[in-house]
């Protein structure tokens, strides 16, 4: 068997399209954790994140025969696909789920109060993120949840670096306004994190 473990993503994708039986396994083990992580951080819902991750990977398999190695990085392409799939789901979720509902679900969980508070904070952030305009939400998530650089985000979103800076700045301002009302509820007034 050919050692594919060090092959670049694009080369593996071409090998997959040419019928190599091992390329998909190597690509999946390499890319799926990143894809699932991005979806989970954006959606804060494991089941939904797994659905998004599976859908993103299906799109990758389907695009493989037409992939041109010199056009884009596979990881960049996947970031874009996952961001778009998550944004669609966040849009549908808007207004349907509130912090109270999550609190009720977690009330039945005997975990420590601190862990519960952490979950509620993260959920509050994702919930607020879902209220932002799509492009702002994407830029903020890629910058502050995925830790990507502005040039990387510019490539993923197909916009200029300046536009990325504007989107993230506006997005953060909006998030602060949205979260300000919940500061006490999230334990930030008596918590010196």
């Amino acid at each position: 068997m050919t050692d594919l473990s060090n092959a670049p993503d694009a080369a593996l994708l071409v090998a997959y399209a040419n019928g190599d039986p091992d390329a998909a396994t190597v690509l999946t083990r390499r890319l799926l954790p990143k894809v699932l992580g991005q979806a989970t951080r954006m959606l804060n819902d494991r089941a939904e994140a797994e659905d998004v991750a599976q859908e993103a990977m299906i799109r990758l398999w389907k695009v493989a025969p037409d992939w041109r190695q010199d056009e884009a990085k596979v990881s960049t392409w996947l970031y874009r696909v996952v961001a778009n799939l998550c944004t669609d789901r966040l849009r549908k979720r808007r207004g349907n789920v509130g912090l109270d509902q999550i609190a009720e679900v977690d009330d039945g969980n005997p975990s420590a109060a601190r862990e519960l508070q952490s979950k509620r904070r993260v959920f509050a952030l994702k919930y607020a993120l879902a209220q932002l305009p799509e492009r702002q939400a994407q830029a903020v998530a890629l910058r502050h949840l995925e830790g990507l650089s502005n040039p990387e985000i510019a490539e993923i979103m197909d916009i200029t670096v300046t536009a990325v800076e504007n989107l993230t700045a506006r997005g953060k301002r909006s998030l602060i306004v949205l979260l300000a009302e919940q500061k006490a509820e999230l334990g930030f007034e008596d918590d010196t994190t």
Partner: peptide, 24 residues
Amino acid sequence: LFDEARSENVEPSDDLLTRVLADA
């Protein structure tokens, strides 16, 4: 909040791996 969100540990389950490879 961003720090807390980034610290989430996410590993694909065996079930998800199986589904993705079946799709592939």
